[in-house]
Amino acid sequence: MTNKTIVLDEEGYLLNLQDWTPELANQLAQEVEVELTEAHWEIIHLLRDFYQEFEVSPAMRPLVKAVSKKLGAEKGRSIYLMMLFPGSPPKLAAKIAGLPKPANCL
């Protein structure tokens, strides 16, 4: 990692989206006591692609749909995402993926 200071906003979301690196994701995950596995990375990449493509961080329902479409119905369930990113999967996953907080997220 470089020595550049990474700035997070008051809720722990990345201020400059360009600052994101996989190492940083690991760090951010550690802070919320999530150990990133392959299964997590799959979702993180999917989220980043989603944001690239549509310029919006998805809330729960669209996230579930996108996961279902890209990774199969088995994974496209909220319970699966809750297991990986406890609490609010769209918020926690967006935070780790270096994306803005999903607006109006439940």
């Binding site: 989603f50 493509e53 549509f54 310029e55 919006v56 998805p58 329902r61 669209p62 749909k65 996108a66 479409k69």
Partner: peptide
């Protein structure tokens, strides 16, 4: 502002 055109393709995920 944000590229709103891009969002059109994402609407399907919102039903």
């Amino acid at each position: 502002g944000k590229n709103l055109h891009k969002l059109l393709a994402g609407l399907e995920f919102y039903d």
